[in-house]
């Protein structure tokens, strides 16, 4: 029988420096952060990261020096970091290649990649600087094969004459997702919002899924209408309980307000962020050690979602 289960370290080794990568989830929800911390420990460099609304997942990679370029619509951690702090510092210092799109445009770009189309039309971005200003230089667009030759193109609809904006497809080497449940055969069950995970997965050559719980394939096949990613499109599965901490996983646990606040503070300077990485990424030898470092089982229990709500209504979001 097919068995796609590998370890976190093995999964990290599948992501080479220079790869194009997309990361699932949305702001402070359901990012594969345990896998991202393993990537940082492996010393991965020069990643080209595509996202729509990211949080301290992509921000962690930026701050750890793993990223060459980000193409995104938004980076923030809700009320804890209205602007993702490493993202802000690195762009202000000219230390990062970046390109801005809107969320609908990034959605369209991933959709085009998933559908095997070279572009997708949207009605957004007309009359804005998202069309007028480009983050990537003409030189990068000409010489870097991972950069689209043009940011976007305004065309007249051949049927009605209306203006529409075409945005270029995204295809990535890898898509990294974190979900609630998956089978060893690569069948995936997402609970709560899908965000853009399905399109991101289908726009990638290889999908690596980390999950809270490994379950029998038969169990997930009993309700096929709830499965949205074909298992043959998934390359590897890694069971990682609390694998999205400090972010939330619907029906499993809430975001960790204390840790998100600590992260937001640390990411405001190089020195403080280096100390953060030492304490939470390089220091702990594996994921179990990380969970101890952030407070251990007693603390993690305080984040547990209440059945029927999907989050913890008792969570104190202000210190």
């Amino acid at each position: 029988m097919i068995d796609k289960v590998i370890s976190l370290e093995e999964a990290a080794a599948l992501v080479p420096s220079g790869a194009t990568v997309s990361i699932g989830g949305f702001t402070s929800q359901r990012h594969p952060t345990a896998l991202l911390r393993a990537l940082v420990r492996h010393g991965v460099r020069d990643l080209v990261v595509y996202c729509h609304s990211a949080g301290s997942d992509v921000d962690l990679l930026i701050g750890a020096g793993c990223v060459r370029r980000v193409e995104a619509a938004y980076l923030a951690d809700g009320v804890f970091a209205p602007i993702a702090p490493n993202w802000r510092r690195f762009v202000e210092a000219g230390r990062l290649e970046f390109e801005d799109y809107s969320n609908a445009a990034m959605m369209a770009r991933f959709s085009a990649g998933a559908m095997g189309l070279p572009f997708f039309p949207v009605r957004s971005m007309l009359g804005t600087d998202l069309l007028e200003k480009e983050g990537l230089s003409a030189e990068v667009r000409r010489t870097d094969p991972t950069a689209a030759p043009k940011k976007a193109a305004v065309v007249n609809c051949p049927f009605t004459g209306e203006s529409v904006v075409l945005v270029p497809a995204i295809r990535t080497d890898l898509c990294l997702l974190h979900v609630q449940r998956a089978s060893p055969q690569g069948l995936v069950r997402i609970e709560g919002q899908e965000f853009l995970d399905v399109q991101q997965a289908l726009a990638a050559d290889r999908v690596i899924v980390t999950c809270e719980e490994l379950v029998d394939d038969e169990e997930l096949r009993r309700e096929p209408e709830r499965n949205r990613i074909p298992p043959f499109a998934v390359h590897a599965v890694v069971p990682v309980p609390f694998g999205a901490h400090p972010h939330s996983v619907h029906n499993c646990y809430d975001y960790d307000p204390g840790h998100l606040a600590l992260y937001a503070e640390a990411a405001r300077s190089d020195d403080a962020f280096r100390a953060y990485l030492e304490r939470f990424v390089f220091g702990p030898s594996d994921h179990a050690a990380y969970l101890e470092a952030v407070g251990g089982p007693e603390h993690l229990e305080t984040l547990r979602a209440r059945s029927g709500l999907g989050y913890n209504p008792e969570l104190r979001r202000r210190p």
Binding site: S53, A72, A73, Y74, L75, A76, P82, I83, A84, W87, R88, V91, E92, A93, G94, D100, Y101, S102, N103, A104, A105, V122, R123, S124, M125, L126, G127, T128, D129, L130, K133, G135
Partner: peptide, 26 residues
Amino acid sequence: STAVGNYLQPSVRFSGSGGAADVAAL
């Protein structure tokens, strides 16, 4: 909601559009 100053190396960089540009248009 993008940047103040020079776009490529701004004095303040913000979170970015998110869905705002889409909502504003549609």
